[in-house]
Nucleic acid binder design. Structure first.
Lengths: 109, 109
DNA sequence: ATTATATACATTGACAGGCGAGGTATATCG
DNA sequence: CGATATACCTCGCCTGTCAATGTATATAAT
């Protein structure tokens, strides 16, 4: 059973940015990483993923460049920018407080 | 500083249902309750709130009826149904796992 | 050779939830 | 009489997700 994507909405960008903190990567690998770190419970739909990349780049939070693989399918690599790091930190902070708020709002007190 | 509503999206219905677990209530009061239990950090926009009520009733998770206040503005009361309780429990369960997943996905491991 | 599977990227159009902006009505306080 | 709080409602826009569809390379199986 996977997670309702509505509850993940709004976290997509931050999840991707977090993945890029460790170093440049490309779409397919990033998604595999997400899959791995959630024990297979979540991965992005391709449309969602690539839409997010466009959005993030438009907002200056990532940069992209084509890799120079000798063989195999081409890969577009992404690098997080300084602004991206900042945005990521901020989102994680916000997540911490959202978490507590939601815990409060979803508890039958 | 309030919470980005995108990160709350998908929780709206469950938050309302949770509020109704304690007993029947009406829109304005429900929203006040949310405000209170979050220390003022969150409350629903009216459009969001009433849209949610319609949706919840369509889905059979709540029932509604007009109160018989002798004076003052009329109030439409809402009652959670058995299905609503079930849906609420399920959402809270899902929230627990989503929370852990997000913690994992937002941690720079 | 052909088929299947994994890797890898991309776009289009539909859909759903949140909400700004606007509206209605009652009661109280100054 | 006007302001504020209570109390409800709807229309139409915006944004993020995703099913469907398309392209291309490499490998393993049939």
């Amino acid at each position: 059973m996977s997670i309702t994507s509505d509850t993940l909405r709004g976290h997509t960008d931050a999840i991707i940015l977090t993945r890029l903190l460790a170093g440049d990567s490309y779409g397919y690998a990033i998604n595999k990483g997400v899959q791995e770190c959630t024990g297979g419970a979540h991965s992005f739909k391709e449309a969602t993923l690539y839409t997010a990349f466009r959005r993030l780049e438009e907002n200056g939070l990532i940069r992209s460049y084509w890799g120079d693989e000798g063989s195999g399918a081409r890969r577009r690599y992404y690098a997080i920018t300084a602004e991206g790091r900042q945005a990521c930190r901020q989102h994680v902070e916000e997540w911490e407080s959202t978490k507590h708020l939601l815990d409060a709002m979803l508890s039958d007190a």
